[in-house]
């Protein structure tokens, strides 16, 4: 399964990617914001995205994907510091399938990834 990890923090991307690799995911592409994310969607089957990013934030990125006939149903996990109930509800309303609040541990991240894939 090809996974796209979008986060403006290069170290956070590495933490997420290392967690995914430890669970057997080996086809991973990365992007630093929503614009780069949209440009790297070819063949992607699962998206993990941050919310607060420059150029194009994660919520706008999700809305763009959901408008596309190709990616309207692709599983999306938002990984963000935005943990307030109103933000979670807003993200889910706009088509995010699952939600991970930073800081997170590897087990929590992988459990959400696996639940989203199976979901």
């Amino acid at each position: 399964m090809k996974v796209l990890v979008v986060d403006d923090s290069v170290t956070m991307r590495r933490i997420i990617i290392n967690s995914l690799k430890s669970s057997g995911f080996d086809d991973i592409v990365e992007a630093g914001d929503g614009v780069e994310g949209l440009a790297n969607m070819d063949g992607v089957e699962l998206v993990l995205t941050d919310w607060n990013m420059p150029n194009m934030d994660g919520l706008t990125f999700v809305k763009e994907l959901r408008k596309s006939p190709v990616y309207a149903d692709i599983p999306i996990i938002m990984i963000t510091t935005e943990g307030a109930k109103t933000e979670v509800v807003e993200a889910l309303k706009h088509g995010v399938n699952n939600y991970v609040v930073k800081p997170f541990d590897k087990e929590t991240l992988l459990s959400k990834v696996n639940a989203t894939i199976k979901g």
Binding site: S9, T11, M12, T81, E82, G83, A84, T86, V101
Partner: peptide, 23 residues
């Protein structure tokens, strides 16, 4: 640059965590 990045991300995580409680 990566150390810079971690400082930014830690600050982001702390203020984001506080934001949830303030909300």
């Amino acid at each position: 640059n990566e150390v810079d990045d971690i400082v930014g991300e830690l600050t982001n995580i702390v203020v984001g965590g506080a934001k949830k409680e303030f909300s």
